[in-house]
Amino acid sequence: MISVKNLHSALFNPVNFEAAQGQCLCIYGESGSGKTLLLRAIADLDPNEGSLALDNQARSNIGADQWRRQVTYLPAESFWWHTRVGEHFESNDTDWSILGLSQQIAEWQISRLSSGERQRLALLRALDHKPKVLLLDEVTANLDEENTLKVEALIKSCLQQGLIVIWVSHDKAQRKRMADQSFVIDETGFHKEA
């Protein structure tokens, strides 16, 4: 279980929520409402205040790198630091076909990937080290419907295995398909969607 209490920074109002194992929590907000900043703050990428805990262990007691391994943020745009795809993965048993990618893709150079391929690979990379919480930031925005559904199916199977997902999405139908809890973020703060 992840619990977020009074999480705030100079750039967004306090946020409170809890999500249990296997739950998907969807967040909607106008652009500029601070959704990305909220996810970044949960992953501890920007200065922020508040008490967060994962399975009753306080974030402040866990090293930042260990926290991010367990609470992994997936931004809308992916970045790569090695030349080939496979070098970014620790495990050797990634199933590329699950998102419709070539079995040889590990050998491919990053520079020849399309933006859709990069986005799907970034999701597999985020799952590579088996996080407990996944923070998704508009991850299907650049994907066609077929691939969007593949991503959703993969997330659903991860949810069944106990993953917690916090998903920022502007796609109402997607939120309806995925959400166990729905929240809205706006200038008044962070609250349950009516």
Binding site: A43, L45, A64, D65, Q66, R68, R69, T72, Y73, L74, P75, E77, S78, F79, W80, W81, H88, R125, A126, D128, H129
Partner: peptide, 20 residues
């Protein structure tokens, strides 16, 4: 910045993220 943060997100330490 993007590459460094992509590594931090993967749970790398700051030393690993800046090593290149």
């Amino acid at each position: 910045k993007g590459q460094i943060e992509a590594r931090l997100i993967q749970g790398h330490t700051w030393q690993e993220a800046i090593t290149h």
